[in-house]
């Protein structure tokens, strides 16, 4: 059972890594606003493309005019 002398400190190191990651995310402001990001991810990618196309279309039309 001497493996415990390695495994137990290892478990503690893992916990410390997790704590480090948590501190990093808190300081990065990831917990500052809990409601908006959930909405943001719902429509980000797909809609940007649409808007881009519209912009291009508008620009094209402007050129024609």
């Amino acid at each position: 059972m001497s493996v415990i002398y390695i495994v137990l400190p290892l478990a503690l190191v893992l916990a410390l890594v997790a704590l480090g990651a948590f501190i990093w995310s808190v300081k990065g402001g990831q917990f500052d606003d809990l409601s908006t990001p959930s909405l943001r991810m719902l429509h980000d990618d797909e809609q940007i493309r649409k808007a881009d196309e519209d912009d291009e279309n508008d620009a094209d039309e402007a050129k024609k005019n």
Partner: peptide, 14 residues
Amino acid sequence: EDHKFLIRIGAAAV
């Protein structure tokens, strides 16, 4: 302050 508090909770949880 909020960040400090959250980190404290994280440490307590660990």
